[in-house]
Amino acid sequence: MSYSSGEVILTSKALLRVRDLWVKVENTLVLKGVNLTIGEGEVHTLLGPNASGKSSLLMTIMGVPKFKVIKGEILYGGVNITKLPPHERAKMGIALAFQNPPRVNVKLRHLINRLKAMYPQDKFTVNYLNVRYLFDRELYHGFSGGEAKKVELYVTMLQSPKLALLDEPDSGIDVESLMSIANFINKFIESGMSMLIVTHLGSVLKQLNKIDVAHVMFGGRIIYSSKSPLSLLKLIYESGYSGLVKLVGDSIEEGLN
């Protein structure tokens, strides 16, 4: 079954509820009334063309100050977190793996030690994803695309989050890295972590053990949601996003005016 917005109701309890969210960055409107519900233990994915608002949505849920909420709210575990600073949301169990993390003047080892001290380390130790050789480097200084993706994913999971927001963990990497990243994510899916994954071309989706719902973003809002993510992906590959937009048709035209 498919739905025209992010309000897909599954049987489990709602962990994250985004209601009519409108967000500005500097003076540009990037989210125009987003509605989304993620239940506990669910894995959702976000598809959509560039600049459709996917990263903006993740950044806003995390609370990065650049993204200003001008209308709407974000509820997490029943608590309204719309005005909370990012570090408090992190402490509550939300973690974001950045799509393009900035260079940071901190040694990776040092960041890892601080994170391990700040968050309860889970029953099983987080797999190093083969990035140990980068531990003494300054974070993201001169890292290749693949190295940056793995490191970012690794440090994000060190936070033992309840809700992991992964922004394109599969872009700019080779096939082997894709497999190890997918296996890494699957381990956490198995343990019951909720996730919202933005994917680039859907590469990682086919390797994941479970995806409950796929949403398509376009022009700052979620225009389509489906409980059959792989069929949706197939549709997009065949007709492109414009094909999907045509399918959803009138509701989009209305929304854009």
Partner: peptide
């Protein structure tokens, strides 16, 4: 850099 670290919980 600041926002990145704040998003990690600092």
């Amino acid at each position: 850099q600041l926002y990145y670290l704040m998003a990690k919980g600092f």
